[in-house]
Each structure stands twice: as structure tokens, then as C-alpha cells.
Amino acid sequence: MLRAAGAIAALLLSLVATAATAQRVERAGPLPGPSLGGPADSSVPPSVPSAPTVPELIVDLSQARVSITSAFQGESLLLFGMFDPPGEIVVVVQGPPARETVMRKERFLGLWLNTGRQSFDDVPAYYFIAASAPLQRLLARGAGGEILSLEDRLSSIRPVRWRSSEELAKFRGGLVEVKRREDLYPAAFGQVTVQANRLFRAELPFPSRLPEGVYDVRAYLLREGKIVAAVSRPLPVGKVGFNAQLAGWSRQEGALYGLGAIVMALALGWLGGAVVRRL
């Protein structure tokens, strides 16, 4: 019992420390009261001169980055933090935006082949939302301007070439379908679990086919439908070690990479052939 309490205290301490050093606390609008000043927020003068006050919303991740190693099969990160009650928590994770080309197959002489294509700009590589209460209810109360459901987020992606709006809607639907299948747009809303009315946690599921880049993890504290605090953290996703090196060579030093691949195949084939004939 005592041990557990000690562990919780340690966790809180580390949270405060993290908040003081590594966090970017964003203010959503003017906020009332002096108790809300966070140490990382320089725009608000410290109104309480003594012990540093705890900001309203503190967030950390179980890992500072997602490392794609040779053993990578997708990963689940834990987002955890603390907030000043009352309120509800919403977490939005977005992959880096890019141009995606959606292709549509149609039957042609009995065979299925790609007949139509449509590119969109500003498509997030990944999109995930988790909330501590049913999201529809939270968003209905007015926070929808900043917190976007996947549908709202995708309504802003820009088609590279214009077509009729129903055609565009079909391609947009196709995009979601493919991304869902690859678990890049997880279909279910995630659950933010609140404990002791102050601590919260959420699992962020990342699949194995994860595009690289800097992801944006955002947590919002909502009170009566209004955002009262928001914390944003960049989450780099990338190949590391051997994988990163190979991918880098393949991209930048194609000729050298090709020669290397040829030499490897020659050496292994030669050796393999020689060894096998001895057996």
C-alpha cells in the first residue's frame, strides 16, 4: 500500500519534471484564474511567486519516438498524464501530411484493372482520436472547430484535379477504406481512461506499415465543451539502425546500393554453390 503510494508520488514528480522541461503548453484562448500558469508558459507572468504551480494538463508518452527496427511489427504506445478536474480529455494523433493517389479498379473485358485515379494533397498518413467520454457528445458542444473527427479532417484535403463532387466523395471514401484496412485510420475511437479523477491514460495503436515522419500528438482538456488547455508533442517515427541505413542508401546512393546488392548475391551464390557441392 505504502509502496504503491510511493510509486504514484514518483510518477507525479516525474510528470511535473517532464512538464517543466520538455513540454510545449499551448493556451486555448484567455484563461481565467491564476492557478493555471504553467512553468513552461512564458507569456503568463508567474502570479504565484512561491512553489511552481502544476499546469492544468500534463502529458507524456511511454516512448519518445517510434523506432522501426528489424523486429518492428507495429507498436502500441501509452500516452499518460494528469489534469485538473473537472473535465474530459481528448487525444488526437496525426501522421505527417502528404499527397496520396487513390486508384480505382474497374472491370475491363472481364479483367479488373485500374481505370481511374485521383490525388489529394494534405492527407494525414495516420489519424487516431481517443476520448474519455463519447466523442460526439464532446464535439457537439463547440470544440469541433479545433478537434476534428476523421471525417471533418478529410473534408479539408485538397483534390489535385477537380471532378464532380460525388466522384470526389467516392475517391475520398476509397482512401478511407484503404487506410482503415492498413489500420492507419483506426476505425474505433480510442478510450481515454481516467483514474482517481486526475490521471488519464490512452493506448495509441501503430500498425506495422507505418509511414515515416514526425507525428503530432495532441491532448485537449475540455470543460463544458470548451477547450481549456491543449498540449502538443511531436512524435518522430522512423527506421533506425541497419534499416535506416539501407533505406537511406537505397534512396540517395542508388548506384552504390545496386552494386552492393549485386556483390552480395554473387558472393552468396558462389559460396553457397561451392559449399553445397562439398556436402
Binding site: T101, K105, R107, L111, W112, N114, E177
Partner: peptide
Amino acid sequence: ELLRTPVSAYSLGVREVL
């Protein structure tokens, strides 16, 4: 594989980071 109706008519091409 070419003849049967695909699971999804849609697929994605190469992602281009601009």
C-alpha cells in the same frame, strides 16, 4: 486473381511527401 471481384476497388499509389 485478375478475374475475381477484388475485396476493394480502391488502392493507394506511392505516397509523395511534398
